[in-house]
């Protein structure tokens, strides 16, 4: 398959997933509501004095990324359940499409859904925990995007594994969270630096960890996805 064909196939697949999602909005609404609930639960987990004392820069990174990771698990599981319900995975496998393109397309649609979720959740966290998002919009976007990319890749690959053995969120969480641990640490560190108002260059080694994770597992996913989905 040529390079252009690969990207076209991945694009078509992602567009198909997103258009199905757009028609029902089931997955996204579930993810948004779920994140909202997790955020509220977290704000009850700490009493007001603790929240005031720690301040948003210490508190928000952990809460934000835990929320996003949990919501991501909900989304990844759903994206393969949709395939299973319509039995469309079999059709996709019959199509003369490179399995790597399948991975790229699925990751892309998962990435877009997560980014849409974040457009809602990040401002919400600013409202709930009181920090000025507008002042740090650029660096925040860079940090969120870099870490969401890795989460989407890993979620797609491991979501396929969990779906293949017929298990849902429980197995996906036990597989996904240990693997994405470095990404999680890096996300918390970078978000903390952004909220402290520091330059991104102060956390450049963490951004490199995230970038390295993204690239390495993009590569691994492209190579190994066919072994996961094959019949």
């Amino acid at each position: 398959m040529t390079g252009a064909g690969f990207f076209r196939a991945a694009g078509v697949l992602a567009a198909k997933d997103l258009s199905i999602e757009w028609r029902t909005r089931e997955g996204l609404s579930a993810m948004v509501l779920f994140s909202l609930i997790v955020l509220v639960v977290f704000s009850f987990a700490f009493d007001l004095a603790t929240i005031k004392q720690l301040g948003p820069a210490r508190l928000v990174p952990g809460i934000l990324w835990t929320t996003l990771a949990f919501a991501g698990v909900v989304g990844f599981t759903r994206s393969f359940q949709v395939e299973a319900r319509r039995d469309s995975m079999t059709a996709l496998l019959l199509a003369p499409v490179d399995r790597g393109a399948l991975f790229a397309g699925k990751s892309l649609s998962n990435l877009v859904e997560l980014l849409i979720l974040e457009i809602v959740v990040v401002p919400l966290s600013a409202v709930f925990f009181g920090y000025d998002l507008m002042a740090m919009l650029g660096p925040m976007a860079v940090v969120v995007f870099l870490h969401t990319l890795g989460l989407a890749e890993m979620g797609t690959l491991l979501g396929a594994v969990a779906a293949k053995v017929g298990r849902g969120e429980a197995l996906l969480s036990t597989l996904l969270f240990p693997v994405t641990m470095p990404l999680f640490i890096s996300a918390v560190k970078c978000t903390n630096a952004v909220l402290e108002g520091e330059e991104l260059s102060t956390v450049s080694n963490w951004l490199l960890v995230a970038l390295g994770f993204d690239l390495l597992f993009l590569f691994v996913g492209l190579l190994t996805f066919e072994y996961v989905v094959e019949e």
């Binding site: 240990p178 693997v179 470095p182 960890v209 994770f213 390495l216 597992f217 691994v220």
Partner: peptide, 15 residues
């Protein structure tokens, strides 16, 4: 599946 996970685990542990 375990082979794919094995490769991921070994690479991940370095990071």
């Amino acid at each position: 599946l375990a082979s794919v996970l094995g490769v991921i685990a070994a690479l991940d542990v370095v990071i």
